Measured scan of single mutants.
Amino acid sequence: KELVLVLYDYQEKSPRELTVKKGDILTLLNSTNKDWWKIEVNGRQGFVPAAYLKKL
């Protein structure tokens, strides 16, 4: 499993997105899109802007 660090808080703006908090370490599911990465948070899957995340 690949992990990502959340660099900035992000509030979901659609049902396909997820809310994340700065400092969270989460599972990366897909990073093929350069702008939006798919991650998992508490069993939910969704997208967060790639600029808000850093691969560990």
Rank of each mutant, 00 (worst) to 15 (best):
K1A: 12
K1L: 14
K1N: 13
K1Y: 15
E2C: 11
E2S: 13
E2R: 10
E2K: 09
E2Q: 12
E2W: 11
L3F: 15
L3D: 04
V4T: 02
V4I: 06
V4H: 01
V4N: 00
V4K: 00
V4Q: 00
V4W: 04
L5F: 09
L5T: 05
V6W: 01
V6Y: 00
V6K: 00
V6G: 01
V6M: 02
L7H: 02
Y8T: 09
Y8P: 00
Y8K: 14
Y8V: 12
Y8F: 15
D9W: 03
D9I: 01
D9Y: 04
D9C: 04
D9E: 05
Y10N: 01
Y10Q: 01
Y10H: 03
Y10E: 00
Q11S: 14
Q11G: 08
Q11N: 13
Q11C: 10
E12L: 14
E12Q: 14
E12P: 14
K13V: 08
S14D: 12
P15E: 13
P15I: 08
P15V: 11
P15M: 09
P15D: 14
R16Q: 14
R16K: 12
R16Y: 14
E17R: 08
E17T: 08
E17N: 08
E17Q: 13
L18F: 10
L18T: 06
T19I: 04
V20Y: 04
V20P: 00
V20A: 03
V20S: 01
V20G: 00
V20H: 02
V20C: 06
K21D: 04
K21A: 10
K21I: 08
K21Y: 15
K21C: 09
K21W: 14
K22W: 03
K22F: 05
K22N: 05
G23I: 00
D24H: 07
I25W: 03
I25T: 06
I25C: 05
I25S: 02
L26P: 04
L26V: 15
L26F: 12
L26E: 07
T27V: 14
T27E: 11
T27Q: 13
T27K: 10
L28E: 01
L28N: 01
L28F: 04
L28R: 01
L28D: 00
L28V: 07
L29H: 07
L29C: 07
L29E: 03
L29K: 05
N30D: 15
N30H: 08
N30V: 08
S31L: 04
S31F: 07
S31D: 14
S31E: 14
S31P: 05
T32H: 13
T32N: 12
T32S: 14
T32C: 11
T32A: 13
N33F: 08
N33T: 07
N33R: 09
K34W: 08
K34H: 13
D35H: 14
D35K: 13
W36T: 03
W36D: 02
W36K: 03
W37L: 02
W37S: 02
K38T: 09
K38N: 08
I39C: 12
I39G: 04
I39F: 02
E40T: 07
E40M: 10
E40L: 08
E40S: 08
E40R: 06
V41I: 12
V41L: 14
V41A: 15
V41H: 15
V41Y: 15
V41M: 13
N42T: 06
N42Q: 11
N42L: 11
N42Y: 09
N42K: 10
G43A: 06
G43T: 05
G43E: 09
G43Y: 06
G43R: 05
R44T: 09
R44S: 07
R44C: 07
R44P: 01
Q45I: 12
Q45N: 10
G46M: 09
G46E: 03
G46C: 04
G46R: 03
G46H: 05
G46P: 01
F47G: 02
F47R: 03
F47I: 08
F47V: 07
F47L: 09
V48S: 01
V48R: 00
P49I: 02
P49E: 02
P49F: 02
P49N: 03
P49Q: 03
P49T: 01
P49A: 03
P49D: 02
A50N: 03
A50I: 04
A50M: 05
A50K: 07
A50F: 02
A50C: 06
A50D: 01
A51R: 15
A51V: 13
A51T: 11
A51S: 13
A51F: 12
Y52F: 11
L53I: 04
L53A: 01
K54W: 12
K54V: 13
K54N: 06
K54Y: 12
K54T: 12
K54D: 05
K54M: 15
K54I: 13
K55S: 07
K55E: 06
L56E: 03
L56R: 03
L56A: 04
L56I: 13
